[in-house]
């Protein structure tokens, strides 16, 4: 807690952001997010949208893996469910965008509930394998349920349209994705101040003790799976509107690993961790490309440095795990703590 933040009421005690400094910084963030599209070019807006989608999905996985302690490698497949739901609704029924996204979330949630069933019996690596199996089954469904998914060729999605405005550029999609992601992140942050969220944490810390405390494991584990998949489904829906083509190969296993890596690199079991992890995993390969681009090298150097970049990215991840096992959020927390007492203590 920040120095000088005396809590004088229960309301204050319960607030998510409790100091003026936090409010001020949040205002700065809001202004930055609002102003960003007017200064950024198409490339940066594209990356912003991609980061927003990845934050939404990573936050979902963080609920399951970071907070409830259930390892899942099925996040990409759940995103696939959301994406296919949105694509099919958009193509066949032409229902409104927000309804489609919600439907994508709910259908993915149903998928998550089914996949979550083994979680009562198996944990850790065994559960991870069970979720891989689920994603293989889902991949098969995506590829072979021709009447709904369009088989291997997939579905082409029309641009999202709200009140006659077509969301066909990154600039416009930014205004759709960033608020949705912000709401989802806020929802997750609030979740862990409720009975449900605390039950998740209790299950993570020791599930038998949690049961002794009166937490029904099946219900809460399934709920965690459901919520996580809902987040993935909505993120997948946004993905469908963003890339506008959904095929079975759009959501490979490596994508699930990407999200798990984002949760771990960012810091498991913290909201900020999921955000930082998603930003890191999405932006570092691009940042490395920019750095290589600035080096005064010939065009052939791009070719030589491409694999080097991949190695550097991998080394950075390993570096974080070794030197900062609590993730990026811990680095962030340390920076914040430094400034809490600044300039009185260096």
């Amino acid at each position: 807690m920040r120095i000088g933040t005396a809590r004088s009421s229960y309301r204050h005690d319960e607030s998510l952001f409790d100091s003026r400094t936090q409010h001020a910084w949040l205002a700065v963030l809001a202004v930055a997010l609002l102003g960003f599209p007017f200064f950024a070019d198409e490339y940066w807006l594209y990356l912003a949208c991609l980061v927003a989608i990845n934050i939404a999905s990573t936050t979902g996985l963080n609920i399951l893996t970071g907070y409830t302690g259930l390892v899942s490698l099925g996040q990409a497949a759940f995103m696939g469910i959301g994406a296919y739901t949105v694509a099919a609704l958009e193509q066949k029924l032409g229902t409104p965008v927000l309804l489609n996204l919600l439907a994508g979330g709910f259908v993915a949630m149903l998928g998550g509930l089914v996949v979550g069933l083994p979680s009562l019996r198996v944990k850790g690596l065994y559960l991870a394998i069970a979720t891989i199996a689920a994603s293989v089954v889902l991949h098969f469904v995506f590829a072979n349920w021709h009447s709904v998914t369009g088989g291997h060729a997939g579905i082409t999605v029309a641009p999202a349209e709200i009140l006659g405005v077509s969301f066909d550029t990154s600039f416009r999609l930014y205004w759709l994705f960033v608020p949705i992601t912000a709401l989802m992140v806020l929802g997750a942050a609030n979740l862990f101040r409720t009975r449900i969220g605390r039950a998740f944490i209790a299950i993570r810390d020791r599930d038998i003790s949690a049961e002794v405390l009166g937490i029904p494991l099946l219900r809460y584990k399934l709920l965690s799976f459901g919520l996580s998949s809902f987040y993935a489904g909505v993120a997948g829906g946004m993905w469908a509107y963003f890339f506008r083509v959904v095929t079975p190969e759009s959501f490979p296993l490596i994508m699930s690993i990407f999200f798990l890596a984002a949760v771990i690199v960012g810091g498991m079991g913290t909201i900020l961790g999921a955000i930082l992890g998603a930003v890191f995993m999405t932006m570092v390969p691009e940042a490395l490309k920019l750095i290589v681009g600035w080096l005064p090298l010939s065009a052939d150097a791009t070719l030589i440095l491409s694999p080097v970049r991949t190695i550097v990215f991998g080394a950075l991840i390993v570096g974080f795990l070794v030197f900062e096992p609590l993730g990026l959020q811990e680095i962030w927390r340390r920076i914040r703590r430094f400034f809490h007492l600044w300039p009185f203590r260096a």
């Binding site: 490339y43 807006l45 594209y46 990356l47 991609l50 390969p285 691009e286 490309k289 065009a299 991949t310």
Partner: peptide, 18 residues
Amino acid sequence: YVPEDSAYKVDQSVAAFK
């Protein structure tokens, strides 16, 4: 000629395009 590495991933290919 302005190339960018795409790593054969759609999101990175689109990023390169943008």
